[in-house]
Amino acid sequence: MNVEQVKQWMQLFSAEIEKNKDYLSQLDTDIGDGDHGNNMARGVKAVEAGLAKDQPTDLAQTFKSIAMSLISKVGGASGPLYGTAFLEMAKAAKDDENDLPALLQAAAAGVAKRGGAKVGDKTMVDVWLPAAADAKQGQLNDAVIDKLVAATKPLRALKGRASYLGERSIGHLDPGAVSTGMLLKTLLQATK
């Protein structure tokens, strides 16, 4: 993975979020507080502005710029979670790692640790952890990602705002899982 690919990735992701902003907020209205689309939109805008300003030249700086934009502009639950994902990738890149599966592994582990969620808790972790494992096996593709996202629907939320709904959270997609799906699919596009 290189700096150009990451920049391309962020452009694609940004466009995808803009397009799906209302959809993500609607998902979050059903089982959360309705702001996930706005949070992510604020985030990707900040990421683009940050990259333009920071003009990072290596992978570690690039990931760090993205992480700082997300951490300081998103807020809510997704801010620290997405921020941590990129911060962990920055750390790994600083140790000269540029292999996509290894970077994803670091990101996924960071997200899981930050939020304390396990697979099956109906959060973005349900996409991050298995996707990272699949990437390691060279088996990550759009269909796999869609399946991971869709699998959050029948679950009962055990973490995040949706967990306050108990049984009522069943039957809805987890908004953070959906946005994570978009992140990973645009990653595949940018690096293929």
Partner: peptide
């Protein structure tokens, strides 16, 4: 103060 119904960020 964060955004409406959204936790503030760590820097603030």
């Amino acid at each position: 103060a964060g955004q409406v119904f959204t936790s503030p960020t760590p820097d603030q």
